[in-house]
Amino acid sequence: MLEGKVKWSNSEKGFGFIEVEGQDDVFVHFSAIQGEGFKTLEEGQAVSFEIVEGNRGPQAANVTKEA
């Protein structure tokens, strides 16, 4: 699992980007967020995730919010 911080997200469009130190930003779709209820990410929020190869390149999977 990698750790990063949410660079920005748009809940209306359903995606955002995660900033990882020393690496390119990672695309995240809201379907990759683990948990119940409305899935949102806040700018600056710490997250853990895996990287998978998506249709348009690397993207985050199994995203969990850190406490």
Rank of each mutant, 00 (worst) to 15 (best):
N10C: 14
F49S: 01
E19V: 09
T40V: 12
E66P: 11
K7Y: 02
I51W: 05
E3A: 14
K65H: 09
V28Q: 01
G44R: 03
P58F: 09
N62E: 04
E43N: 13
K13G: 08
E66A: 15
E42H: 13
F38T: 13
V20N: 01
E21P: 14
V20H: 04
E50R: 09
E42Y: 13
E36T: 11
S48Y: 14
G37S: 09
V47D: 02
F30V: 09
G22W: 05
V6K: 00
F17I: 04
E42G: 07
A67N: 13
G4R: 00
H29L: 07
E50P: 03
K13F: 09
E3M: 15
Q59T: 07
V6H: 02
V52D: 03
V47H: 02
S31C: 10
G54H: 06
A61V: 12
F49K: 03
N55P: 15
E36P: 13
E3V: 15
N62R: 10
K65C: 09
T64A: 08
D24E: 11
Q45A: 09
T64D: 04
V47I: 06
G57V: 02
Q23N: 09
T40Y: 12
N62Y: 06
S48L: 13
A61L: 07
V20K: 03
V52F: 08
A61W: 07
A61G: 08
E19S: 13
K5D: 00
K13A: 09
G14Q: 12
E21S: 11
E53W: 14
G54D: 06
E43W: 13
F15D: 00
G57L: 02
V20L: 09
F15Q: 02
S31W: 06
G22H: 04
F49L: 05
E50C: 13
E12S: 12
G57M: 03
E43Q: 14
E21C: 14
G4T: 01
G14D: 03
E42K: 12
V63A: 02
N55M: 14
G44C: 08
V26I: 11
G37F: 08
L2K: 11
E21G: 08
S9M: 15
G35T: 08
A60E: 03
E53A: 11
E50H: 10
D25R: 02
T64G: 05
K5H: 09
N55K: 14
M1S: 09
I51K: 06
G54C: 10
V26R: 01
N10P: 02
K13H: 07
G4W: 00
E42L: 12
R56L: 09
E50N: 11
K39C: 12
K65T: 11
G37N: 08
D25L: 07
K13V: 06
V47A: 02
E19L: 10
E21R: 11
G4P: 01
T40R: 08
G35K: 04
L41N: 01
N10K: 05
F49V: 02
E19W: 09
L41K: 01
F30I: 09
V28E: 05
Q45E: 13
S9N: 05
T64E: 07
N10F: 07
Q23A: 10
D25W: 06
E36C: 13
F49H: 01
V6L: 07
D25S: 04
V6N: 00
F38Y: 13
E43I: 15
E50T: 11
S31E: 07
A32C: 08
N62Q: 06
G16L: 04
V47G: 01
V52R: 07
V63H: 01
G16M: 05
F38Q: 13
N55H: 14
I18E: 00
N10E: 04
K39W: 11
E66L: 15
G44S: 04
G37C: 11
E21I: 12
N55S: 14
S11V: 14
E12F: 11
V20D: 00
V26H: 01
V52A: 06
W8V: 04
L41G: 01
S48C: 14
A61T: 10
E19A: 14
E43M: 14
E36L: 10
F15A: 02
Q23Y: 14
S48K: 14
G35A: 07
L2A: 07
V52G: 03
D24G: 11
N10H: 08
K39P: 11
M1L: 12
E19K: 12
S11F: 12
L2W: 12
I18H: 01
E12D: 11
V20M: 08
A67C: 12
I33L: 13
N10Y: 05
S9Y: 15
D25C: 08
G22Q: 04
G57F: 03
T64C: 09
E66S: 15
S11W: 12
D24C: 14
G4S: 01
G4L: 02
W8K: 04
N55D: 12
E42M: 12
A46Y: 15
F38L: 13
